[in-house]
């Protein structure tokens, strides 16, 4: 990514127009595929955590993974930016492609991959640094900024995009941990978008937050999808219904069903999906 591309909208004009016009359900089919997973299997030691997952994730849309806890949805999410590499006993088979390149290929550098695929975690985890340094951290290590003014602009732009600028612009030197839970999570989102990723993974980003903070994050997610491809894991079906255009239902390590959010919630094909959505198990 170049500096110029980062501050601009990187959605092509014609696509933008199509997005505005077409109903959401249509858009999913029409849009190019950003992430394509084929027959992904994950093992933790002897435990077969994920079985033959095949899914396409469309660009500039929000894709939600839902399912009961322990179903493998977070595990799969962590495969997309290779966060599972940090776990010694974890072994991954199958193929995950981003822009038609296998991210588990030997030529792929995991550091660069993660700059391209950002992640936001369940619990807000700001670094024990100032708000400013939290945002500047990523651009600095990736050599995206040179000099103070450059960094200042970058920090401001990222915080603005995350809708946090107004709240923190006077106290950038305070530690990130001094913010409220919701603000911390938006700080983490700002931190993630500061390195201009193409995909942002969100692992239950609202589970530690109160309803008002949750609503703000959800609004933010909806705005961000213009510029980024977003994959969100959530345990809340309402949230999935509210923010996502595509939904995938995981159960016991198996991807049971995927499709347009509307269709999954109104007319699920699989009995298990139906049971989960109607609250028979969860």
């Amino acid at each position: 990514m170049t500096d110029a591309a980062m501050s601009e909208d990187n959605t092509p004009k014609e696509l933008e127009a199509a997005l505005e016009k077409a109903p959401e359900t249509e858009a999913v089919k029409a849009l190019p595929i950003k992430v394509r997973a084929t027959d992904v299997n994950v093992f933790y030691g002897d435990n077969h955590a994920l079985k033959d997952v095949t899914i396409d994730i469309p660009e500039h849309r929000v894709t939600a993974f839902i399912g009961p806890s322990g179903c493998g949805k977070s595990t799969f999410l962590r495969c997309i930016n290779r966060m599972n590499d940090t776990i010694d006993i974890c072994r991954i088979e199958g193929k995950i492609e981003i822009d038609d390149r296998d991210i588990y290929d030997r030529s792929i550098d995991v550091v660069q991959l993660r700059a391209k695929v950002g992640m936001v975690f369940q619990k807000p985890n700001p670094f024990p640094k100032s708000i400013y340094d939290n945002i500047a951290y990523g651009p600095r290590i990736h050599g995206m900024v040179a000099g103070k003014t450059d960094t200042d602009e970058m920090v401001e732009a990222s915080l603005k995009r995350a809708g946090l600028w107004a709240e923190v612009k006077d106290r950038l030197a305070q530690p990130g941990t001094s913010l409220s839970g919701g603000q911390q999570q938006r700080l983490c989102i700002a931190r993630a978008i500061a390195v201009s990723p193409q995909v942002i993974l969100m692992d239950e980003p609202c589970s530690a937050l109160d309803p008002i903070a949750t609503a703000r994050i959800e609004e933010l997610i909806d705005e961000l999808r213009r510029n980024f491809t977003i994959v969100i894991v959530t345990h809340s079906m309402q949230q999935a219904a509210r923010v996502s255009q595509k939904t995938a239902f995981f159960h016991l390590g198996v991807l049971v069903e995927q499709g347009n959010t509307e269709q999954i919630f109104t007319n699920p094909v699989d009995k298990r999906t139906q049971d989960y959505i109607t609250g028979r198990f969860g």
Binding site: T2, A5, N10, D109, V111, H142, G143
Partner: peptide
């Protein structure tokens, strides 16, 4: 890396960026 349609000039700039990025990565490693 990017979806923007490219002409020669941007291609050139992009190549330079790539070399710079690769050098940086090497340095970091």
């Amino acid at each position: 890396m990017t979806d923007i349609p490219a002409n020669d000039a941007t291609n050139d700039a992009e190549a330079r960026t790539r070399t710079r990025e690769a050098a940086l990565i090497r340095k970091r490693y």
